[in-house]
Design a binder for these strands. Structure first.
Length: 765
DNA sequence: GTATTATCTAAGTCT
DNA sequence: TAGATAATAC
């Protein structure tokens, strides 16, 4: 027997050794699920299965890469690089680029992110002259996503009496038309949204038997992690791919299903059992991660759920400490209690920062923890929230890349056609959009051949547009012979973005410029990596770099400056991870469980599973915190501890000794909170804004500014002349220094309020 | 067309 | 509270 197999327990080993035929592994939290998958693949390779025949679908690309590395270590062959491993989305994107022509897309198609999709929906709604309150773009996108996930095309949608009447009942009768326009517009822009990657993959396999056959033959062994979070579309694709060999292994835990809002369907577990009646099932129930107290506390939560597969998670680990409940009087106090607790545990037990994680239900809760950790000089890393690729300056530069690669990418074009400013305004762009949609063309195609269309734009604007297009075309031409880094630098410089940000000396401007540099460095890394990987083909082009940039998530990005940091993230983002110390924060009614998910049993059960996931991330200790008041929507709200705290079996929990809490009376607490807010205000963006204002004021107040001098002398009763408004009489003057305002009554245009700093007034009398 | 300021409105988990 | 949109002046 292979040496590495001895590291597995009985159940794990059986699951690893059973390689042929359909199997399902029901793996409790911390039961070594990743280890089983890793060793199973390693075992397949040891049995001389060709890595090209293995497809492994994981929940994040990072997980895939880590698993790959481990397998390479075990098997000792770099051949393993040839396995297909990654998320559903990234693997399918890769396949779709190869097969794109079949489904009528160019291989350089863009992947639209949620912002792009919403923007398309907004413009569709606007053009159809509909109310965006009735047709809320977020709602519309959600319903489109649900349709695609259920494999309902817009044609089928509009043919379905049931769906159409459903929309009519919901007073959104035109939803089907929006769906249709949205799809057509994405297609015209050579763009796919996240759901299209799945939807089109299914279409490819359904409509092209040769493609289906090729991939069925290729993927002789299919392994799926986190199976409980697959949606209907993913389920069908798996069924298609596995139909020939039926060597499919799915691993999951129904108790950890937390993505139903995204279409994940626990029923897929039952579907699997029906599709492959002779399937083998393996249960991994021994937990190696957590202490008994943690496992027991988690079990005491999950028994409250009715719908679940029978399974008992147990552990031989030590008892450990009880789960401790921490009470705070405000969200900011919660932050400092948690930060202090981390500090104490670090000191008392010689732990490192990276041994701690703070988890919460919503990203908005991160602020208090950031503040408190910063005060104690504890380094941290926030996962999720505003990720690197969502920052404005990054999106701007990326939009140039996108347009260079795919000229029809309308969303990218709209974003940058006038950034940096080149005198192409909103009205011109709106007109172009209308002409484009009338002619069923992309915006680029209209500009490229504007002689053929009546745009009604003046020659000046058309020239500016042509210039823009010529510039981007010159980029496109060089795509093939330059590597990604050379291209990126060229674009950053020629587009004027680098200059624009370099000239901006405000603190924000400087940090934006740094971010651009970071992106360019990242691209350099990419080029180096690709070249050292000794590819036969040119794999270091910009197009290559951009391929699945939209699919990169925060969790995939490695932290450069050291890894010893406290992790702060949502519970969703913590899925699949483990930490010695876990703080679950904001465990209050209406926050966790979320106010949106308490109306049906199913919703509440998903929240409960989420809580279960949070608890089972911990190895040594869990702290649960709640606050009795919290800032939400800008004002203080009082909060109740969550029902989940009550559901925990009291045998496994303890409450923080009341003595440890400083006895705030209401008044002092109020001032404490106020102090906190004030402090935040002047450390955050406000200070930057003020800086900008101050510099402006200084600039306009320099003595060699003649306007300033003359305007300072303006007084009530004077007759002045204005460039555009003509002659007028000053009625009032108020404000001080640079903020002086005057109300002037003009002969021709009537009364106007003017800010003297800007208005160029000539004194006549 | 551009830049700044005022007003409104939404507010959640993620590929 | 913040981000997006509308309004205003240049």
């Amino acid at each position: 027997m292979e040496k590495f197999l001895k590291e597995l327990n009985e159940a794990q080993r059986e699951a690893v050794l059973f390689t042929d035929g359909p199997i399902m592994v029901i793996a409790g939290a911390g039961s070594g699920k990743t280890r089983v998958l890793t060793y199973k693949i390693a075992y397949l390779l040891k049995k001389n299965i060709d890595p090209f025949n293995i497809l492994a679908l994981t929940f994040t690309n990072k997980a895939a890469n880590e698993m790959k590395e481990r397998i390479i270590n075990i098997v000792g062959t770099t051949d393993a690089h040839n396995m297909w491993m990654g998320t559903f989305h990234s693997v399918f994107a890769k396949i779709l680029r190869r097969e794109s022509l079949k489904i009528g897309y160019p291989n350089n198609f863009t992947i639209y992110d949620t912002d792009d999709s919403k923007s398309v929906i907004k413009s569709v709604i606007k053009e159809m002259d509909l109310d965006d309150k009735v047709y809320n773009p977020g709602y519309v996108l959600g319903r489109i996503s649900a349709a695609k996930t259920s494999l309902i095309s817009y044609e089928e949608y509009n043919k379905s009496d049931e769906l159409v009447s459903e929309d009519r009942m919901a007073r959104k009768p035109l939803f089907g038309q929006i769906y249709e326009s949205y799809c057509k517009r994405c297609y015209k822009a050579s763009a796919m949204d996240f759901d299209d990657l799945l939807f089109n993959m299914h279409m490819l396999l359904r409509n092209f038997p040769d493609a289906l056959l090729r991939y069925q033959k290729k993927f002789k062994y299919i392994l799926v992690d986190e199976y409980q979070d697959t949606n209907h579309c993913q389920y069908i694709i798996l069924k298609q791919l596995a139909a020939m060999f039926e060597n499919i292994c799915v691993v999951g835990d129904d108790a950890q299903s937390i993505y139903s809002f995204r279409g994940a369907n626990i029923q897929n577990i039952l579907g699997f059992q029906n599709d492959y009646p002779d399937f083998k099932i393996f249960r991994l129930e021994q937990n190696y991660r957590s202490t008994q107290n943690i496992v027991n506390a988690a079990n005491s939560i999950i028994v409250n759920n009715v719908g679940k597969v029978h399974k008992i998670v147990w552990t031989e680990n030590e008892n450990g400490e009880k789960v401790k409940i921490l009470k705070a009087h405000s969200d900011s106090e919660e932050g400092s209690i948690v930060a202090n607790s981390i500090f104490e545990n670090k000191m008392n037990f010689q732990m490192q920062n990276k041994d701690f994680a703070i988890l919460y239900r919503t990203n908005a809760q991160s602020r208090a923890f950031e503040e408190s950790l910063r005060k104690l000089n504890i380094p941290y890393r926030i996962y999720g929230g505003l990720s690197f690729y969502q920052r404005k300056e990054i999106k701007d530069l990326i939009a140039y890349f996108r347009l260079t690669i795919n000229n029809n990418d309308d969303e990218a074009l709209k974003r940058i056609v006038n950034y940096p400013a080149r005198g192409i305004g909103k009205t011109s762009i709106e007109r172009l959009i209308i002409v484009a949609s009338e002619n069923n063309k992309s915006i680029w195609q209209i500009i490229e051949n504007f002689g053929d269309y009546k745009t009604g734009l003046n020659t000046g604007t058309l020239n500016k547009l042509s210039e823009f297009i010529t510039m981007v075309k010159s980029f496109s031409v060089q795509l093939k012979n330059k590597d990604a880094h050379e291209m990126a630098c060229l674009v950053a410089n020629s587009s004027g973005i680098a200059r624009e940000l370099y000239d901006d000396k405000t603190p924000e401007g400087i940090s934006r410029h740094q971010n651009i540099e970071e992106l360019l460095n990242g691209i350099k890394d990419f080029v180096d990596r690709q070249e050292s990987a000794a590819g036969e083909e040119n794999t270091s082009s910009l197009a290559e770099f951009m391929q699945d940039i939209a699919l990169v998530t925060d969790a995939d990005i490695k932290d450069k400056d050291g890894n010893d940091k406290v992790s702060i993230m949502t519970i969703h983002a913590a899925k699949g991870l483990e930490f010695p110390y876990v703080y679950i924060s904001g465990v209050e009614e209406n926050l966790f469980p979320s106010q949106f998910n308490i109306n049906t049993r199913n919703e509440l059960e998903e929240e409960r599973r989420l809580f279960y996931v949070a608890l089972t991330r911990a190895m040594k200790r869990v702290f649960i915190s709640f606050a009795t008041t919290r800032y939400r929507w800008g004002n203080v709200v009082s909060c109740e501890p969550s029902r989940f705290i009550e559901e925990l079996d009291t045998k496994f929990i303890e409450f923080e000794n009341k003595k440890h809490f400083k006895p705030f009376d209401d008044d002092s607490r109020l001032s404490f909170d106020k102090f906190e807010i004030k402090k935040y205000k002047y450390t955050g963006q406000t200070v930057k804004k003020n800086l900008v204002k101050i510099t402006q004021a200084i600039n306009s107040a320099t003595p060699n500014n003649p306007d300033f001098i003359s305007n300072q002398n303006i007084q009530v009763g004077m007759v002045v002349e204005h460039q555009r408004f003509g002659k007028g009489k000053v009625i009032t003057v108020e404000g001080k220094q640079s903020d002086k305002k005057a109300i002037v009554f003009f002969e021709n245009v009537g009364q106007k309020q003017l800010l003297l700093k800007y208005a160029k007034l000539k004194v006549i009398e």
